[in-house]
């Protein structure tokens, strides 16, 4: 499923099937990897952005951008 579909409080792991587009590359450099889970922490005021715990950093993404990242939930 898409990262943007993750609700606040839910976790997922990065799917190995992602294509390495530019957003994906930047995020892997910020600590995103198949080895550690991603957690959705909170939404912005009007809901257009969500903050995720990626590795050990808190990174905010727009929903339309988070749609570009494939994740797997258990």
């Amino acid at each position: 499923m898409k990262l943007s579909m993750l609700n606040v409080g839910e976790r997922a792991t990065l799917s190995p099937s992602n294509t390495p587009h530019s957003l994906f590359l930047r995020l892997t450099d910020m600590g995103m990897s198949t080895a550690s889970p991603i957690e959705c922490l909170f939404k912005s005021l009007s809901g257009g952005m969500k903050a995720y715990l990626i590795g050990s950093s808190v990174v905010a993404l727009r929903n339309e951008d988070a749609r570009l990242i494939e994740v797997i939930t258990k």
């Binding site: 390495p20 994906f24 990897s33 198949t34 080895a35 590795g55």
Partner: peptide, 20 residues
């Protein structure tokens, strides 16, 4: 820039695992 994308993604994730 814009080349070796898969290689970069692979190396980046590997290094993150090592670092962790």
């Amino acid at each position: 820039p814009h080349s070796f994308a898969s290689l970069k993604a692979e190396m980046s994730q590997k290094v993150t695992e090592l670092a962790s």
